[in-house]
Design a protein around this nucleic acid. Structure first.
Lengths: 337, 337
DNA sequence: AATGTTAACGTTACCGGTAACGCTAACAGA
DNA sequence: TCTGTTAGCGTTACCGGTAACGTTAACATT
């Protein structure tokens, strides 16, 4: 291979100017049908591929979206990614996937790198940045949408789009389900203290408990790592300290599965001794024994809606393109019938 | 925001030439320490970010890798992605993630788009393309590594890197484990007929069976979709047709879990009536009841090794940069003790 | 006939960087 | 004193496209 074929080669070979080739490539008018066909033949014959780089330099648009997630291998985010990717592809955008590996410094580095790549917009999932860092980062990008995180002080009107789950309603629904079954001593394995979703779910839990007249439940709230092991360890501790608990509401399904294991080890039968409710309805939730009662969240829809919102904002929509809150759905299975 | 700040702005503000700014940005010599510091101050003050687009146009390198997978939300691939992404990031490459959604036409489209993006190389996982299409696509890219797929006719020496699992050894090991436990009537749920991995695992199965003197086992081989539901349906059929089977070796863990469910429905106890072995050791494998005996494949390592190989090839390594075969490891749990 | 109009194409000036030189002053060595 | 070397910086020509104009010939209009 001596030289990559470029537009000038096509133009020379076809006996036309650069602009005619450009017009053919971009399906513009002002080209006769025969010339167009002829140029297309030459393009195919030469195996020419236009350079998005050169095009991007002059058009100031890259057709690329930066998609930032804490961890692709987390099934939660990988489904979000898939949804987002699907929508982007359908509208001829490409996706630059960036893992932060849950590291805020890396998140900042990644956001800077996306700036240098001149992406047309960013989709930022579950950002771990501080309010200031986040605002700064967003302001430096032409368009941005946050998933599962909101800005407290949205100082500039509509400077960013937001897509979240209705965690409060979800937490309330899950807790109410347990309350309706007669439970009153309900513990909450709250997930990471920094998680915004966790706070929302806790708020829903509190609302339901308070509304039913249960008080002094705050000692039954225990933070934990959002993993099977985290749930197992914290459930053991919580159930040992407060053996009177008859139910557990868990930050997510992984934690709930850990709680399942802990109950097994402590000889507490599910759901007879302890009822358990998770969150997310990951595929695993239906497969464990007993199957998990949980709040379903459509992660795929989270991704699609967020990407749709972002592309709209890139196209200039500012009103009615700011916030979307997705509902959750209670899925009743064996762990809390 | 009137105008994005560019290098010329920095140069003017700092009272130096463009090249001096460029040298500072790229950490080159021939700049005095004080000038360097001064320019860096101006850069920070102006919030300047160099344009990878413009840089890419002149250097002919983008620092981007195209990563093509059938489905990110498949936990198998999402771990490969994570491994690959980690290595790329560590070497200052960025990753363009592309989902083919298991569609060969979309795979072709994605590969063409990556050409236009002028990526420095591609990492292609479990390609569903035909031999010819694959060769063509690879030849059009500056560097390429295949994962879980090999070219039959590697006509050009070292035109592509390959990273695969030792499916044959894995299949043999899994089958041998069952044989060692005294089983002779061992069925094989083979996965999709088009899967290269499936073929390898079947070969390992055949070798072990034949070596132990078991013959006419080919009727016990049944293809199936690589999913829980696929495994369940095929296991039901296979066990109904050949109730004499005492063990099942499964294409992957999802299929094995489906088989688990089928056995439950048919009233066959595991492992007493039927022993089951899966493949991959996905996180779920340890969590189902009974826990799955399976062949562990390090998907993360598949990703890291493949990306390392690709980056080496991009750097010009052609010898000793062609093929890597990763071993598998038998993980014995309750489903086939 | 003179003057629009329009379809179909070509010219040129960038987009924002870097490579490859060129230049200059200061200092060393012969 | 003259030449060579080197540190430190500047000039210029691209990289491969597109936007914004020109241009031209054919035809319609007045």
């Amino acid at each position: 291979m001596t030289h990559r074929v470029r537009m000038a080669d096509v133009a020379r070979e076809a006996g036309v100017s650069l602009m005619t080739v450009s017009r053919v490539l971009n399906n513009k008018d002002d080209v006769s049908a025969e010339t167009r066909q002829h140029v297309q033949n030459i393009i195919k014959q030469l195996g020419y591929r236009p350079s998005d780089i050169a095009r991007g330099l002059v058009t100031r648009r890259t057709g690329a979206i930066g998609l930032v997630v804490p961890d692709v291998s987390n099934p939660y985010f990988s489904e979000v990614v898939r949804g987002a990717e699907h929508v982007a592809y359908a509208q001829n955008y490409s996706v630059l996937l960036c893992n932060t590996e849950e590291d805020p410094r890396r998140e900042l580095a990644v956001l800077q790198s996306l700036e240098e790549k001149r992406v047309d917009g960013i989709l930022l999932c579950s950002s771990r940045l501080s309010e200031e860092e986040l605002e700064e980062a967003i302001s430096r990008h032409p368009a941005a949408v946050l998933v599962n995180r909101r800005l407290e002080f949205a100082d500039e009107q509509g400077s960013v789009g937001v897509v979240t789950l209705d965690d409060v309603a979800g937490g309330q629904m899950a807790t109410q389900h347990l309350l309706d079954s007669g439970h009153r001593m309900i513990g909450f394995l709250a997930g990471p203290p920094t998680s915004h979703s966790g706070h929302g779910r806790m708020e829903g839990y509190s609302i339901a408990m308070t509304a039913t007249g249960v008080t002094s439940f705050s000692r039954w709230i225990k933070p934990c790592a959002p993993t099977v092991e985290g749930g197992r360890a914290s459930a053991r501790e919580l159930l040992s300290t407060y053996p009177e608990l008859t139910a557990l509401f868990c930050f997510n399904d992984l934690v709930a599965i850990g709680a399942l294991q802990a109950c097994g080890e402590l000889g507490r039968a599910i759901p007879d001794d302890i009822a358990i409710v998770g969150f997310d309805d990951i595929p695993l939730a239906a497969l464990v024994t007993p199957a998990l009662t949980t709040c379903r969240t459509s992660r795929h829809e989270l991704g699609t809606r967020a990407m749709e919102l972002l592309l709209k904002r890139i196209s200039g929509c500012t009103e009615a393109c700011q916030e979307i809150v997705l509902p959750t759905e209670l899925i009743v299975r064996d762990s809390a019938p």
